[in-house]
Design a protein around this nucleic acid. Structure first.
Lengths: 350, 350
DNA sequence: GCACAGCGTTACAGCGCTGTACGCTGCGGC
DNA sequence: GCCGCAGCGTACAGCGCTGTAACGCTGTGC
C-alpha cells in the first residue's frame, strides 16, 4: 500500500483537501466536529505530511543552518546537539556548516547559495574571521551565538562573559590565590568575547584589591591546547610566577595543565586553574577542571526560538540580545577534592 | 528581482523546460551547442535549482539521517563531521539523530516516521541497544557503522577490529610489557566490536607467548571515563598488577590515566597505556595517549557512497561489508616521549 | 421579514521541478 | 527516392501540499 496522501484523508473524512490541511496544521476555522472526523481519518490511515511538498508550497526549505568553526570541537559538538534538539521542536532540520579553513565563507556567492537553501542561520563565529553576512541577510533571519560581531545588527544569544569571567576570577581569589594570570586573549584581533572576559578578570582583581599585571595576561588566540601549554611555560619562567590561572577556554586549560604537570607544579596547591565552557573532557582530565558552565541547552533553545519568531513576524523587528545563565562548577583544579561533576557553586545571573 | 526559475532559463536559452532541466542535471540527449546555450543562460541569471521542488518531483527528500548515540562524544562528533562533508558531495543534508536515552528508537512507529523523511540512514549503534531496523528498512537503504549487529543484513563499514586490537597489544609487547590488561569489554552483552577487540588482544598475547589471564580483562561497558577509572583501580589491587593496559576506547583510557595518576603510577614506565579511537583529547591528555586511529574520513565517505549506490541501483543488491584502514599512533602513554601527534607507526591493512 | 455579518468550508490555481511519452529532424541503407 | 532509425528536443501531466478568494449556510439585528 502506498503512503496515504492528504487527499485520501480528505476523502475518508468527507471534507475538502484544504479543510484536511487546516486540521493537520492546526489552523482555525474548523469546527470541532469536523476536526475530530479528520483527525480520525489521519490516525486510521497513518497519514504523515510530505515535507517536500509542504515546503514547496510554503516557500520554505525546512532547513536551518548552524555555522560553526568545526564540529569536532567539544564545545561546538555540545551546542550542535542542543540546537538539533531545539530545532526538532520546530520541525526543522539542521544543516551543520563547518567554516574553519574554508575561505569561501568569505565569498558572497557561496553564502548566497547557502541562504537560498535555508530558512534561517545560527552563526557561531568562534575563531573564524568575520564573514560578510550583512550582504546576504536580506530576508533570511540570522542569530549570532557567543561573539557579537556585527555590533547589534542581528539577534544575539550568549552568556554574560564579563560576569562569568569575574566569577571565575573571584573563585580563584576565594581559594586564596593572589597572583592570578589570564590565558586566552587573542593576539591578532580584539575579539568581543576575549575582551569581555578580560574585563571581568580585571574587575574581579580590582574588587579584591589585587593589581592587574600585564605580564600575567597571556595570549592563546586559537584557543588550542598547545597554545595553553606555551602560555603556561611562559608564565612559569616569570620571576614571580602566578598562583592561579584563569583560562578563557577549557581546551586551553588542558594545555596549561599539561605544562604544569611537566614542570612538577602541583594543582591546585601551587597553582590553581579555572577554565571556561565545561567541555566533557574537563570532567575526566587529571585533575578535573573547575570551569564556567554556560547553559548551552538554553542558549540553543533561545537561538532557535528567535529564528522562529523572526520568521513568523511581520516586517523587521529590531535585533534582540539575550543573556543566558551560567554556573561555576568547582572541581579538582581549584579545590583539590574530587567533587560531584555536576556540582554548582554559584548562579549569579537570572 | 525574484529568484530565476528554470522556466526563465529555458526561455532565455530558447529551449523547453525539460531540456534546461537536462542540462542542469547533466543528463544525456542534449547537443553540445544547446548545452552551452543553456549553461550561459544559467550563469547569466544566476540560476540555482529549487531543492524542495526537485525533491518533490523526484520523490526524494534530500536528507540522510545519521543516527548516533550522542553528538557530544568526541569520536561521534568527528564521524559526524566527516559524514556531513561526504554527504555534501552528494547534495545531501544530514539529519543527525541522537539515540541515547531515547527508548522511542525501539518503537517501530517512530522509526517509520523517520524513514518517511529520509533517503537513507547511516546507523552507528555505539552503546545503544539494538533497535528494530529490519522492520522499516523496506526500501530505505541503511549503512551500519562500526558494530555489525544484524549480522550481514545491511551494508556495513568499519575497521578490522581484530587486527587493530592485535596491533595495539603487539605494540605494548614491543615496548617490553609482559602483563597486559584489557579494559572495555561489555558486561551485559557480548557486542560485536568488543568481542572482536578481545579476540585481537588474545591473538597478540598468544603470538608473543604470553598467557591470557582472565583477571586482566576488565569490563567498562559504557565506555565512560569513570568506568575506566574503576577498572584501573581494580587492576592495581591485584596481587600482580599489569604493566600495560589496552583500553577499548580513548575515553576509557582517560579514566585509566586518572586512576594511575592518583595512585602515583608512572606512565609509561610502570604501566603503559594504549587507547582506541584517536579522539582529539588523547592528544592533549597528560600523558598523551597512544591509540588506534581509524580512518574516520574514509569510513564516512564509504558509508555515504554505499547509500548513494544502493539508491541508484536497480533491485536489492546483497549487503556489502567494507574494512577501512587504521593507524597506530604512538604517543607518550607508551613511548614516554612527546611525539609528533600525527606520527604513524604501522599501517597493517589495505 | 430581510439584509447582512461571519463562520466553516470549498474550488482552484499554483509552488518549481522531473519523468514519460512522443514528435521532429537528418542521416544512411536498400 | 523512400523508409527506418538514431539522436534531440518538446508537451504534458503530475509530485503533494498550501494560499486565496469565494461560496453557502446559519444566526443576528432592526
Amino acid at each position: 500500500m502506498d503512503r496515504p496522501r492528504l487527499k485520501d484523508v480528505a476523502e475518508r473524512a468527507g471534507v475538502s483537501l484544504k479543510t484536511a490541511s487546516n486540521v493537520v496544521n492546526d489552523f482555525p476555522h474548523v469546527s470541532d466536529a469536523t476536526r475530530q472526523r479528520v483527525q480520525e481519518a489521519i490516525d486510521a490511515l497513518g497519514y504523515r505530511p510530505n515535507v517536500s511538498a509542504r515546503n514547496l508550497a510554503r516557500g520554505r526549505t525546512g532547513i536551518i543552518a548552524l555555522a560553526v568553526p568545526r564540529l569536532d570541537m567539544p564545545y561546538v559538538a555540545e551546542m550542535a546537539r542542543y540546537v538539533i534538539e531545539a530545532a526538532d521542536a520546530h520541525s526543522w532540520i539542521v544543516l551543520v556548516e563547518q567554516t574553519a579553513g574554508r575561505p569561501e565563507w568569505q565569498n558572497g556567492a557561496v553564502l548566497d547559495d547557502l541562504f537560498r537553501r535555508i530558512d534561517g542561520l545560527i552563526y557561531s563565529p568562534g575563531l573564524a574571521g568575520e564573514s560578510s553576512l550583512e550582504q546576504v541577510a536580506a530576508d533570511t533571519p540570522i542569530v549570532l551565538l557567543g561573539e557579537n560581531l556585527y555590533d547589534e545588527r542581528f539577534d544575539h544569544v550568549s552568556i554574560d562573559n564579563v560576569a562569568a569571567a569575574r566569577t571565575a576570577t573571584e573563585h580563584l581569589v576565594a581559594v586564596g590565590k593572589r597572583r592570578i594570570a589570564a590565558v586566552g586573549v587573542r593576539r591578532e584581533r580584539q575579539s568581543g568575547t576575549t575582551r569581555e572576559r578580560l574585563t571581568g578578570y580585571r574587575q574581579a582583581l580590582r574588587a579584591a584589591g589585587l593589581p592587574v599585571e600585564p605580564k600575567l595576561v597571556r595570549p592563546a588566540g586559537s584557543f588550542r591546547g598547545e597554545e595553553g601549554e606555551r602560555a603556561a611555560e611562559a608564565l612559569l619562567r616569570l620571576p614571580k610566577p602566578p598562583d592561579g590561572i584563569f583560562c578563557f577556554t577549557d581546551w586551553v586549560a588542558l594545555g596549561v595543565l599539561r605544562a604544569l604537570h611537566n614542570h612538577g607544579v602541583r594543582v591546585p596547591e601551587d597553582i590553581a586553574v579555572v577554565g571556561f565552557d565545561d567541555i566533557p573532557y574537563g570532567r575526566v582530565a587529571t585533575p578535573s577542571i573547575t570551569t564556567i558552565a554556560p547553559d548551552k541547552r538554553e542558549i540553543a533553545r533561545i537561538a532557535v526560538d528567535l529564528l522562529a519568531q523572526r520568521l513568523s513576524a511581520r516586517g523587521r523587528p529590531s535585533p534582540r540580545s539575550t543573556l543566558v545563565d551560567f554556573d561555576l562548577v568547582v572541581r579538582e583544579s581549584t579545590s583539590g577534592r574530587t567533587v560531584d561533576p555536576g556540582g554548582t557553586a554559584r548562579r549569579p545571573r537570572h
